[in-house]
């Protein structure tokens, strides 16, 4: 649905995005991840035809962003970082205006507005002035203007920024419900958001592509050894040396601030949980928990962006 080919964007002599390539499939929710200033917003603006790339090109639903901007624009719904709202308009008037410039025929307009108001939970505020709404409701109006014309592609730039936890959960489930019918690109610097919503992740750092994969794929690629976490009821000094004597165990370190907690590093792709459990039972340590640790997205993210830096 979206193909990005070697897109570079320079502002003067500052390069915001450099030679970025990736693809988004139909119906997919793709997370666009990077620290602040990594070039996320620039990339979103290029895809929405607000900016043109300096080099390279991108195609949205088969249309080229440089040569066919109008066609691209008719395929997308876009929520910029700051929701573009006219503060002096009421919610329904605003949605009416957006619907018209997005090319919804007048006879369908009322129905579409009703639908999107219900979907975004704006029923109670639809006759109020946008400027008087809370940030959470404004964000929802922003989302409503992006989906009112039911676009095949949705580009959301930090959709949950500045919301309270309850609102965040609501917006996320709304976005999740959009997947399948819509192709969604979602940029964020909040990692749990990606974990909860997105199928695949694109990680960029200082304008460069660092990784594109599913979260599990990224974790597998980065992992140099496996880890097991162990929690026992009766902590004993012998535990460390005993575990290290098991074949395949590389190191054992006690977890900070957790009495009886240990992290056992083992050879890659060797599941030693059974052996560890057996030993703990034989020694009567009192196993409370035993689990394989997979890399969290936070760790993946930090490792990837750090690797980039050390390679320089």
């Amino acid at each position: 649905m979206i193909q990005v080919e070697k897109v570079t964007k320079r502002y003067g002599d500052r390069t915001a995005v450099s030679s970025l390539s990736f693809e988004v499939n139909k119906g997919e929710i793709l997370g666009f991840l990077g620290p602040n200033g990594a070039g996320k917003t620039t990339m979103m603006r290029i895809l929405s035809c607000y900016l043109s790339p300096t080099l390279g090109t991108a195609r949205v639903a088969g249309f080229d962003v440089i040569r066919q901007p109008r066609e691209v624009k008719s395929q997308i719904g876009y929520l910029p970082e700051n929701p573009p709202l006219y503060r002096e308009m009421t919610v329904d008037r605003f949605l009416d205006f957006v619907g018209r410039i997005r090319g919804i025929p007048s006879r369908d307009l009322r129905g579409r507005i009703g639908k999107v108001v219900e979907r975004c939970g704006l029923g109670a505020v639809q006759h109020r002035l946008i400027g008087n709404l809370s940030k959470g409701f404004q964000q929802r109006v922003g989302l409503a203007q992006a989906i009112i014309h039911e676009p095949p592609v949705l580009i959301l730039d930090e959709p949950t920024i500045g919301l309270d936890p309850v609102q965040i959960t609501e917006i996320r489930s709304l976005i999740r419900s959009l997947g399948g019918n819509h192709t969604v690109i979602l940029s964020t610097h909040i990692l749990p958001e990606v974990q909860k919503i997105c199928g695949r992740v694109v990680i960029i750092h200082e304008g460069k592509l660092v990784a594109v994969d599913t979260q599990a794929g990224l974790a597998a690629r980065l992992r140099k050894n496996d880890q097991i976490s162990l929690l026992v009821a009766r902590d004993q000094p012998e535990i460390g040396s005993r575990l290290e004597s098991l074949p395949g165990v590389l190191s054992v370190c006690p977890r900070e601030k957790v009495p009886g907690g240990y992290t056992v590093e083992t050879d890659l792709r060797k599941d030693l949980r059974e052996e560890v459990a057996r030993m703990a039972v034989e020694r009567n340590w009192g196993v409370l928990e035993i689990a394989r640790v997979s890399l969290s997205l936070e760790e993946i993210f930090i490792r990837l962006t750090r690797e980039e830096e050390t390679q320089k």
């Binding site: 929405s48 607000y50 624009k73 006219y86 957006v98 410039i101 090319g103 203007q145």
Partner: peptide, 14 residues
């Protein structure tokens, strides 16, 4: 200033 330019310039109008 308000960022609504982004709305108008990403709508399918010339």
């Amino acid at each position: 200033k308000n960022g609504t330019a982004e709305l108008l310039l990403t709508a399918p109008i010339s």
